[in-house]
Design a protein around this nucleic acid. Structure first.
Lengths: 233, 233, 233, 233
DNA sequence: GATGAATGAGGCTTCATTCAT
DNA sequence: GATGAATGAAGCCTCATTCAT
């Protein structure tokens, strides 16, 4: 009740590598299989509801082996988070096309972000939902990633400002606020895009880009809303 | 995150009613105490990690009484969600000052939202994190609330558009996208504001308001970013 | 799972006495209501699965009142057993028509037995199944009743023997064995009659009577089966 | 009753395998130990009153192992019933000496029945008392066994009738009634034999055989008792 | 006479984790 | 390198039973 999602185990156990159960395999491969299984399980069931039994079974190995390689449930979860965080950051970095203007880069980065999260929903669930829902050891890992992304976006914002005007000084707090809002909006839109299949990653990216663009423009123009500002935006 | 694991239980048990442990109290009062305790516990630990033992202890009653009044962990969690969702919606509705222009109303609503979430961080955690992290019975409750808020925001957006220009027709998808992004941004900013105490509800509201304002302006102007648009926002 | 039977509470709570809930009633009446409720509940759910809550509710009183009048679950169960055992014994005794020959008396007694058990299935369940299934305090009560009936039947058997032949001496063990077998058969047939509604109390009694009759006849004739006896009964 | 509450645990835990507590053992062996312990516990305490704790302890293992191998209390009880039902049926079948006349077969079957129930009183309690006292999942298992035995007895009755007379047609209902009564009597006598140790299986079988014999004879002779029949059996 | 409020104790079940092979 | 066997600890839930009014 109330836990997990998928009773139907029609998903691939990634046994597609042609491995027969019990086959000796190099440690690295086994470890990857375990992490894959763990990400799926944690992503769908949540940290507490995921059982080492299910993870081991999904990975096609025995439980003691999981412990041998990954020590404990906590360590395993941390490893998942770390791996997926790096993968996401890498996907975004690699998606950014370097030759473009700052806004072009932002755009390509956003597309990469939405594409990656759409293609790895379990990983996204681990990072966005599960890791942040459980106490300190895990939340920190995600915070690090989030900060990395926020920093990256901040850089792009500064660059865009530079390109546009030369050196308009932007207040640091404003920029951070914008970045926080952008990332939050992105996360929300990622969820929206995952639910309503009709919305593609590209559309989500476009929506967000518009949003960011407008916010940035206002910021640079110093055109800020205040209680005294009246209508007519 | 600001929630953390909360090992140090230096928090007030809200026993402020002057009650001595073990005193007989009318059902309604006890029930409120239990819900209070449950919100705190669920908010900090998460649904699975929260134990009925801890909830009962925090409420200052024995476990069986919790079951007598609230049936099961699932029902208890649902009751928490329901109560806090209504409280949040009510807070926002009550915060909106009716005489104002649409943007003034949006502004006051946002302030109320950030104020409420800042004052009830555990409740906010329950709604934003915990409820959505666990399966169907709970997520739906929050979805209802979220949709209510999204609908409300959508109304204000339309009203603002009207006020500004008369009848610019906005594409429905754009408006929904904007609302989704806004709510997501708000959620993210609420977290930010909770973490860094230096950021007040008012500031967060201002940041978001700017954001919304700019997005709305763009939308109405038809001034949309596209890959071919070049720099100079 | 595995307990009780009737979810559908379409049975009368015996509130047919025209009592309004909460009405003060003489102790004897209240006590009877409680015992009625208890017999139904114990009969359907079994001793352990029956809860004092259900019994109190079915009786239309509060739990503490049940304790006030009947002390404990154990005492309550004992009271049920005692009352129903006496009722059954009385029904049989009253059913026996005194003027008849011994076999006529046996016949009328059997009819009374089957009629009573058919009309009070819950009471029969309490005596036959539940009481004997649980440890010492209860089994003894039923044993007493059973012995009373066995003794009564034994008397009739002796009387019948007398009537038939004058003083054929029957071995005590044989008579007791016959009586035991008879009672067991009666219990089994009572169950059979309860299940297959097509079998009436009268038919069951007839079947058993034939049985008894034949057994008794053999006994008196000294016509006993032994491994060396060959076919042709 | 002979079962009682069994406070004094002076019984052997059947640890006769020479195993030391905690030793690793193959699954099949452990499973048998658990079933043995469960039969004893269920037989003496009843389904509800038996605790998994006691069963595990009696089996010399920890509770989780019981769950690992047997899933749940319900499954465990079902497994007990199934195993003991099969054992009893097998004992009776194996006890029947095939070369004999029908009545000889009935006799040998009865002896086997009484011997088996006398040697396995807890198993008999499980089948006769406990399983039938608790709701549907369990009663059905025993019903199947009972029907199997009733059918078997019915066959023998027909055969005996054949041998005796050639083809006297017996009414189906009469035969079923006889079989029901016989089985009931047998069950009752089994209890009697268990209580009073002085009564051996052989004696019980003899008593019942006489009973059956007489009933069958009457049936075939059409010599039935009726209210109008007067004395002189 | 009657009850709403409250609890200590115990039962079923699951899980992360470790041996011994 | 890999696993079948095994468990301590903990969680959800229910129940018989008692106060205080």
């Amino acid at each position: 009740m109330g836990e997990g999602e998928g009773e139907g185990d029609s998903d691939g156990k990634a046994e597609g590598e042609g491995d027969v159960k019990g086959r000796r395999m190099p440690r690295a491969v086994r470890e990857r299989q375990m992490l894959d299984a763990a990400v799926v399980t944690f992503g769908r069931r949540g940290y507490r509801a995921a059982s080492m039994d299910e993870i081991a079974e999904r990975a096609g190995v025995s439980k003691p082996l999981v412990y041998l390689y990954l020590n404990s449930k906590e360590d395993l979860f941390t490893a998942c988070i770390r791996r997926e965080a790096q993968a996401l950051v890498a996907a975004v970095r690699d998606g950014v096309e370097p030759g473009l203007t700052a806004d072009g880069q932002l755009w390509s980065g956003l597309r990469a972000f939405f594409t990656h999260t759409a293609e790895h929903p379990d990983a996204w669930s681990v990072l966005h939902r599960q890791a942040r829902t459980h106490g300190e050891p895990f939340a920190r890992e995600v915070s690090l990633m989030r900060e990395e992304i926020v920093a990256f976006v901040t850089t792009l914002i500064h660059a865009a400002a530079q390109e546009a005007h030369g050196a308009t000084e932007l207040a640091e707090r404003d920029v951070t606020g914008l970045a926080q809002a952008l990332v939050g909006a992105a996360e929300s839109l990622a969820g929206w895009a995952n639910e309503a299949d009709s919305v593609t990653a590209k559309e989500a990216a476009a929506t967000l880009m518009n949003f960011a663009w407008a916010g940035l423009g206002n910021l640079m123009r110093g055109d800020r809303w205040s209680p005294r500002t009246r209508s007519a935006p």
